Simulated assay, not measured.
Amino acid sequence: MVTEFALEGDFIELHQLLKLCGVVDSGGAGKALVSRGAVRVDGAVELRRTCKIRAGQVVETGGVRIAVMAERRPHHP
Rank of each mutant, 00 (worst) to 15 (best):
residue 1 M to Q: 08
residue 3 T to A: 04
residue 4 E to G: 05
residue 4 E to D: 11
residue 4 E to T: 15
residue 5 F to Q: 01
residue 5 F to M: 01
residue 5 F to G: 01
residue 6 A to H: 12
residue 7 L to M: 13
residue 7 L to H: 12
residue 9 G to Q: 10
residue 10 D to G: 12
residue 10 D to M: 02
residue 11 F to T: 07
residue 13 E to R: 15
residue 13 E to F: 01
residue 15 H to Y: 15
residue 18 L to G: 04
residue 18 L to V: 09
residue 19 K to Y: 12
residue 19 K to I: 02
residue 19 K to T: 09
residue 20 L to D: 14
residue 20 L to W: 05
residue 22 G to V: 10
residue 23 V to W: 01
residue 23 V to H: 02
residue 24 V to A: 02
residue 24 V to P: 03
residue 24 V to K: 04
residue 25 D to H: 05
residue 25 D to E: 13
residue 26 S to P: 06
residue 27 G to K: 05
residue 27 G to F: 10
residue 27 G to Y: 09
residue 28 G to C: 03
residue 28 G to R: 07
residue 29 A to I: 09
residue 29 A to S: 09
residue 32 A to R: 09
residue 34 V to D: 01
residue 35 S to W: 00
residue 36 R to V: 05
residue 37 G to D: 04
residue 37 G to A: 05
residue 37 G to T: 04
residue 37 G to Q: 05
residue 40 R to G: 02
residue 41 V to P: 12
residue 41 V to G: 09
residue 42 D to Q: 14
residue 43 G to F: 05
residue 44 A to K: 08
residue 44 A to M: 07
residue 44 A to E: 15
residue 45 V to Y: 07
residue 46 E to N: 06
residue 46 E to Y: 02
residue 50 T to H: 04
residue 51 C to D: 00
residue 51 C to E: 09
residue 51 C to K: 14
residue 51 C to P: 00
residue 51 C to R: 15
residue 52 K to C: 02
residue 53 I to H: 02
residue 53 I to F: 03
residue 53 I to N: 02
residue 53 I to T: 03
residue 55 A to L: 07
residue 56 G to L: 09
residue 57 Q to Y: 06
residue 58 V to N: 07
residue 59 V to W: 02
residue 61 T to Q: 00
residue 61 T to F: 00
residue 63 G to V: 04
residue 64 V to H: 04
residue 65 R to C: 09
residue 65 R to T: 14
residue 65 R to M: 09
residue 66 I to A: 13
residue 66 I to M: 14
residue 67 A to E: 14
residue 68 V to S: 10
residue 71 E to F: 07
residue 71 E to H: 11
residue 72 R to P: 00
residue 72 R to N: 03
residue 72 R to M: 08
residue 72 R to Q: 12
residue 72 R to V: 15
residue 73 R to M: 11
residue 75 H to F: 11
residue 76 H to Q: 12
residue 77 P to V: 11
residue 77 P to I: 04
